[in-house]
Amino acid sequence: MKRSIPLLITFLVGVALIVAMFIPHWPFDVLNQNFSVFYDIIAVFAFILGGGNLLKVHIRKVQRKGGDWKYSLVTIIGFFLVLGAGLLKIGVPGGWSGDYQATGSLFKYLYDSAFQPLQATMFSLLAFFVASASYRAFRAKTREATILLVAAFIILLRPTPLGYYLTFWLPEPLQFLHVPNLSTWILSVPNMAGQRAIMIGIALGIVSTSLRLILGIERSYLGSEGKG
């Protein structure tokens, strides 16, 4: 029960979807469509599981008065405030029939004043860490590092006025060395070749892993009891 049923479910669902690719007719086409919707629904339950787990961890921390427990309280309050505002459609013009994120609703208000600025700032903070990573990467110690440096530098120069003024004076036969042209070439030729090789490698890896999962050779997703 604990091991064989999950393996059987994985096998049946995986095989049905592969067959649906080659026989796109009843019942496989319907199965394909329905499984896709089922997957979306289960993914939402995964979000709920994530929220539940987050609460479990932080409530336990508050109960035990563990380190930084006051901040856990902030997480719990923020969580319930947004969840309540969204699920109960507080302030939505039109009540229950209105859009949950309509202008004037508490959910939209919290999105604009907390979620959106927090998310954007958190990601923009990465600009500073990327700058520090650049400093390390841009020390051209080896030939490989030099290629990386030159490619990144030309791509970075492209949208700046400096990129234009550095090479705009080049004569017609050398126009391909003009920074915007060079940047386009790097993106569409060596970059594409590298990305293509990576994509082919990833595809082969995914195909072999998918086969291992469907055939029950790869069982790590079952946890420790999946061994053997």
């Binding site: 939402v44 979000f47 709920i48 929220g51 997480t75 969580f79 969204g86 907390a114 979620f115 927090l118």
Partner: peptide
């Protein structure tokens, strides 16, 4: 910490109403 709580609830709400 506020971001963690708010974002978890945001995606739960979106999933609830859209799916």
């Amino acid at each position: 910490h506020l971001f963690v709580g708010v974002s978890a609830a945001y995606w739960m709400t979106v999933g609830f109403w859209t799916t």
